[in-house]
Design a protein around this nucleic acid. Structure first.
Lengths: 243, 243
DNA sequence: CGCACACTTGAACCCCCTCAACCCAAGTGG
DNA sequence: CCACTTGGGTTGAGGGGGTTCAAGTGTGCG
């Protein structure tokens, strides 16, 4: 009954039950009773997405909703001349497509090998109707994202480069799924360019700021994709604007 | 049965029925059937708020939800050193307090004489349970705000001062409640300082940019609180980033 | 009339961006 | 095995858009 865990490269047609989904627990699905999970599973279609692939394009008609179960996705908006604003990174459990409008308001690209659950709009509407708890949970999710968006507006509108990078690191520490013990290691699956586009800065400024923190012995960088926070309270202070 | 329309200075205890509410129609209340409005009215408490009064304080325990029926409210976040980011302006029909958390994530201040409907959290929860349509509408609202927030992130993270001010004017044109015919006049109930805090700029930059637009004959300013857009397509172009 | 407050305008400065060179690790292919 | 390429990251020098500081201009209201 149990299939191997190495499903990163599993073919798309392979069916994975919702009950054994690794993202269940910290996703909207958590409100569903076990006996109703089959309904959920029937409505969902698993899909693997290769690193670099854009599976939601801003402006396209919104036909589906997605739930990330593995990997990381960047959500972004583009300007005609190529300027890019990353509005968020979505990891396992994150629900995508929370727009009522008929077209997507943002694009989504997998920044590493990713697996998502796809729901068609009519199917999801049906589910929401049958399971009010699911709708309630979705409202909660939307509210939480709204709060995060407001925090990001403060960052983009009023914080210095130092404060932005510090905020980013601290937020990543806090949002890390507590696998086991609380850690001080931040995983950075995204490139410097994507971090910059998220923080409203340039690659160079992000790099320089991280170097500065490193020189000040507040962090270390074992690899480009990892940062170890040595002085978390100090970083939090910087993030909040207390020089 | 009909009371005079000049309720701006009406005492707080005066009861106004939901059926005659001027904000009904473009608020969440619009999904309620007429016969259920009494339930809504029973749960709501009208309250007048003076210009300059802060009636939601970030960090306070979130006891109530609000629905603006008249006037304008600015929503904002503060940093310890006084830096301020306005996350939005809420006019009639706008629902406030869409956070599930136990504390408010932002502050709210009336920037002109304002009237709101107040709902206690338990009362609203009760209503949401009894009227699924209300919950659905609230989810829609939250999604719309999320889309707006993403647009604002693009503005704050990637747009120039010119583009920000242009975006602001265009957005205000589009969001204007279509009283009668489409107009090219933008009402600005907020100060330059509040506009600046909304756009992530300073008072001076906002003022200079508006002066520039005026010198270029794209707008006129009959008063400090009014802007007439002379060349809307051009402004839209600037807002989108097409120099 | 005159104070207060919001707004405008000018000049100097600075933080971050731009441009450019360089580093480094991971392929790739002869 | 090594030369070459490619993509991401770092570091330096210079410039510019927006801020800061400061003074001046309305304008509503007692």
């Amino acid at each position: 009954m149990h299939r191997p865990r190495s499903i990163l490269l599993a073919p798309q047609h392979e069916h994975e039950t919702c009950a054994s989904c690794s993202a269940r627990g910290y996703s909207v699905c958590s409100v569903m009773e076990d006996e109703d999970l089959s309904r959920l599973a029937a409505a969902a279609v698993a899909r693997d997405i290769a690193k670099g692939e854009t599976f939601i394009e801003e402006g396209d008609t919104a036909t589906d909703f997605f739930n990330v179960t593995q990997g990381t996705v960047k959500l972004y908006k583009l300007m005609p001349d190529g300027r890019q604003q990353v509005t968020g990174f979505a990891g396992p459990g994150h629900f995508l497509g929370l727009a009522v409008s008929s077209t997507y308001a943002f694009s989504a690209e997998a920044i590493e090998q990713t697996r998502v659950c796809r729901f068609s709009r009519p199917k999801l509407r049906e589910l929401l109707h049958d399971f009010p708890a699911l709708e309630e949970r979705l409202l909660q999710t939307a509210c939480n994202e709204l709060v995060a968006a407001q925090e990001q507006m403060l960052l983009l509108g009023r914080k210095t480069a130092r404060e932005r990078v510090a905020s980013f690191l601290v937020a990543r520490l806090e949002s890390a799924i507590p696998c086991r013990s609380p850690t001080d290691t931040v995983a950075l699956p995204m490139t410097r360019s994507e971090i910059a586009d998220y923080l409203g800065l340039t690659i160079e400024t992000v790099s320089r700021t991280l170097s500065k923190f490193k020189a000040e012995k507040r962090i270390t960088t074992p690899s480009n994709a990892e940062v170890v926070v040595l002085d978390r309270p100090w970083l939090s202070g910087i993030a909040a604007g207390l020089h």
